[in-house]
Every structure is written in C-alpha cells, then in structure tokens.
Computed example of a mutant assay.
Amino acid sequence: MTTITTRTVEYPADGLTMIGHLALPAGVERRPAVLLGPEGMGLSDVERRRADALAELGYVALAFDLHGGRYLAEPEEMLARCLPLLADPERMRGIGRAALDVLCGESQTDPGRIAAVGYGTGGAVALELGRDGVGLRAIGTVNALTTGRPGEAARIRCPVWAGVGSEDPIMPPAQRDAFVAEMRAADVDWRLTVYGGALHAFHHPPVDHPTVPGVGHHPRHARRAWRDVLELLAECLTVAE
C-alpha cells in the first residue's frame, strides 16, 4: 500500500453544487482510476473510506456526490429525490459525467483506464454511463440491477459485475432476471453474484437513523463483496508497482 492524499472537490451537476471526495496515491505518474458512487442516502464516510482504500492500492479514486453535499438520512426525503432520479437516465448520466470530468481532470488519472463502481443509486449511475457509451474499463455495482432503455446496453464496452443479496426485496428475483436478460441481449461480458441470506445494502455498516424496509448489514458478505470489487478492478485495471 502507498501513502495517499485526499481533498474535497466541488463541481456542478443536476443543478446543484456537488461535493466529492478525491483520494490520490503518492507520486505524479498516471494511474488507473475509479469513479465510486454511493447509496441513495448520499456520500458519507463509508464511501470516503472506500476511496481512500482504493488510493492506498494505487488507484486514483473519486467518491462522487448525489445530493449537493447533503446526506439524506430520512427515508421519505431520500426516496423523494432518488425515485425520480432513477427514472431519468439523462439526469443520472449527467451526474456521472460531471464526476467523470473531475476525475479525468486530475493529472494522475490515466483516462484510458477508468472503472465505475457504485452502490444502489450510485451503481445505477455507473450502469447508465456504460449505456451512454462512456469508454470505461469496468463497471461494478452492488444493489443496482437497474435496467435501461431498450437497446442501449449494447453501448456497454466493458465487463460488468453486479452483486445482490438473495433476500433483497428492492432487487427481487424478477429484477435480477430482467437485468440478466438485458445484459445477455446486448452481448455484454457480465457476471452476477448473489449473496445468500443478504438483504438490500448488506455491504453498508449499520446506521443510526431510519432506513427503508428490507435493508440490513451482513458483515461476512460485505467483506466478500469488497473483495469481488477489488478482483474486478485488478482484472480490468492494471496497477503499476
């Protein structure tokens, strides 16, 4: 692992001033980079720590914002913002592209080696970037088996890995099937990992505020899902020693 530096970055998207968290490895050489998207509640220390961990492994990492610097702890407020967002691919793509521009603007970022990894709403944003034809090297999602507009998955030009809990009521078997059908029809290089006994947001540590039904932390699968993300990145983004 390597010494890292971090800083807050502000940028416009979705009519808001977004506040992201950028983590950088030591040195000045170009590095592979990861765009990291949060759950629907928004950017928190969970994603900041993940970005830092990725930087320690040699990646440039940007944990991007969804809500203009706000963390939406109340389920009603979170759903009121996220449900319309999830129904609007152009808004999701705009949020993702704005963050991607920030990441690509960093001097250490190798623009030819970028992956997008997201959780929940952040994962949906990552998938929409792929459906929009962005030249990513990999897409990884957890809790985000969202499907896109007909035919647009054919624009995805990289491997896609998705993880979901077997008991997730927000991403039930019918949603899994629809996602798989979309990936197959588009001839995408895809993988789906189902974590037995896990609920929605199983990867996220317990929070001290109300959540939507069907959410629950599963420590063992959370560790496994993180390893799966790292394996995806290691496969698709070669980190120089």
Score class of each variant (00 low, 15 high):
Asp14Val: 01
Leu16Thr: 13
Leu16Glu: 15
Thr17Ile: 13
Thr17Asp: 10
Ile19Phe: 01
Ile19Gly: 00
Ile19Trp: 00
Ile19Ser: 14
Gly20Asn: 03
Gly20Val: 04
His21Trp: 15
Leu22Glu: 11
Ala23Gly: 07
Pro25Leu: 07
Ala26Thr: 14
Gly27Glu: 11
Gly27Ile: 13
Gly27Cys: 12
Gly27Leu: 12
Val28Asp: 15
Glu29Asn: 12
Arg30Cys: 05
Pro32Glu: 06
Val34Ala: 12
Val34His: 09
Val34Leu: 10
Val34Ile: 14
Leu35Glu: 08
Leu36His: 07
Leu36Thr: 07
Leu36Ser: 11
Glu39Asp: 15
Glu39Cys: 11
Gly40Lys: 02
Gly40Tyr: 00
Gly40Gln: 01
Gly40Trp: 03
Leu43Thr: 07
Leu43Asn: 07
Leu43Pro: 07
Asp45His: 14
Glu47Gly: 00
Glu47Ala: 12
Glu47Met: 15
Glu47His: 13
Glu47Asn: 12
Arg48Ala: 05
Arg48Leu: 04
Arg48Ile: 01
Arg49Pro: 00
Arg49Ile: 08
Arg49Gln: 14
Arg49Glu: 14
Arg50Leu: 14
Arg50Pro: 08
Arg50Gly: 14
Ala51Leu: 04
Leu54Gly: 06
Ala55Asp: 10
Glu56Phe: 06
Gly58Pro: 08
Gly58Asp: 09
Gly58Leu: 08
Gly58Trp: 04
Tyr59Ala: 11
Val60Asn: 09
Val60Pro: 11
Val60Ile: 10
Val60Glu: 10
Val60Ala: 10
Ala61Thr: 11
Asp65His: 07
Asp65Trp: 04
Asp65Ser: 08
Leu66Ser: 11
Leu66Glu: 05
Leu66Val: 11
His67Val: 05
Gly69Lys: 04
Gly69Gln: 06
Arg70Cys: 04
Arg70Asn: 11
Leu72Val: 00
Leu72Phe: 02
Glu74Asn: 10
Glu74Tyr: 01
Pro75Ser: 00
Glu76Phe: 02
Glu76Met: 09
Glu77Ser: 12
Met78Lys: 05
Ala80Gly: 01
Arg81Glu: 14
Arg81Gly: 00
Arg81Met: 09
Arg81Ile: 05
Cys82Ala: 15
Leu83Phe: 12
Leu83Lys: 09
Leu85Ala: 13
Leu85Gln: 09
Leu85Asp: 03
Leu86Gly: 11
Leu86Gln: 06
Ala87Ser: 15
Ala87Asn: 13
Glu90Met: 12
Arg91Tyr: 09
Met92Asp: 06
Met92Gln: 15
Arg93His: 12
Gly96Val: 13
Gly96Glu: 12
Gly96Leu: 12
Arg97Gln: 15
Ala98Val: 13
Ala99Leu: 09
Ala99Val: 10
Leu100Glu: 03
Leu100Asn: 05
Asp101Pro: 00
Val102Trp: 03
Leu103Tyr: 00
Cys104Ile: 13
Gly105Val: 05
Glu106Pro: 00
Glu106Leu: 03
Glu106Phe: 02
Ser107Val: 12
Gln108Thr: 05
Gln108Leu: 11
Thr109Glu: 03
Thr109Trp: 00
Asp110Pro: 03
Pro111Leu: 03
Gly112Thr: 06
Gly112Pro: 01
Arg113Trp: 07
Ile114Ala: 01
Ala115Leu: 04
Ala115Tyr: 01
Val117Gly: 01
Tyr119Gly: 02
Tyr119Leu: 14
Gly122Cys: 07
Gly122Thr: 03
